[in-house]
Design a protein around this nucleic acid. Structure first.
Lengths: 105, 105
DNA sequence: GGAAACTGGTTTGTATCACAAACTATATTA
DNA sequence: TAATATAGTTTGTGATACAAACCAGTTTCC
């Protein structure tokens, strides 16, 4: 048995992109949507997420194709740059549209 | 290490009430917010959730104090009525306020 | 120069969660 | 009386979010 049909409130749970719906990831995307790129530590301070948590959310966003991760060395230290993709931007916009509709404004 | 501080986007992940954030529960609450009460089967058809899924979401909402569940018999058959509480209404309103702010527009 | 502390993360362990299938208990119908 | 329907609840499981523990270096301090 699967949920497939539309309902009286005129939206289905499947309309909501869970990848974006998760607050931590929404926050990450909302930063990158404006700035396009950000390094790991910048995003960490902005979101106030723990490193571990941030790390795994970035991995998920990467797997979803919503961000690209570039690792390099700055001087002698490792550095991780995260860039939002076209797909990621679109997903973010669509999520906002969907939620606007659902929340009603 | 815990997330506690505010961030540059001016909201924290903790601002979002996960009890309401879950789409299935948001849908249930959005129906009850308008109608105040609804029986199990009505909500099931409106949400298009499976019975099992709906049952457990209702239990969670009940534990959170967002709904009250009243079991009775209609004729010889069991019947389950779900009523949104004052707390539930307030939580729903606050969630919408929070999300409106976060989604922006 | 060697221990200690810091940097910039990733991996691991755990508790929780969402979900549908399987099940329960009674009632109705064939 | 056997099968089917009703009205849900319980169970199994795969996925998830999270912070603690860990790791590979680098810099600082004595």
């Amino acid at each position: 048995m699967k949920n497939v049909s539309r309902n009286a409130v005129n939206w289905s749970v499947d309309d909501i992109d869970r990848m974006v719906h998760e607050p931590a990831r929404y926050m990450i995307l909302s930063i990158l949507y404006v700035l396009d790129t950000g390094d790991f530590l910048f995003i960490q301070t902005q979101t106030a997420l723990t490193k571990g948590n941030l790390s795994s959310h970035i991995s998920k966003l990467e797997e979803a194709g919503y961000v690209k991760v570039v690792k390099e060395f700055i001087g002698k230290r490792p550095h991780t740059m995260i860039r939002i993709t076209k797909t990621g931007k679109k997903a973010f916009e669509e999520y906002r549209g969907t939620m606007s509709r659902i929340i009603g404004r």
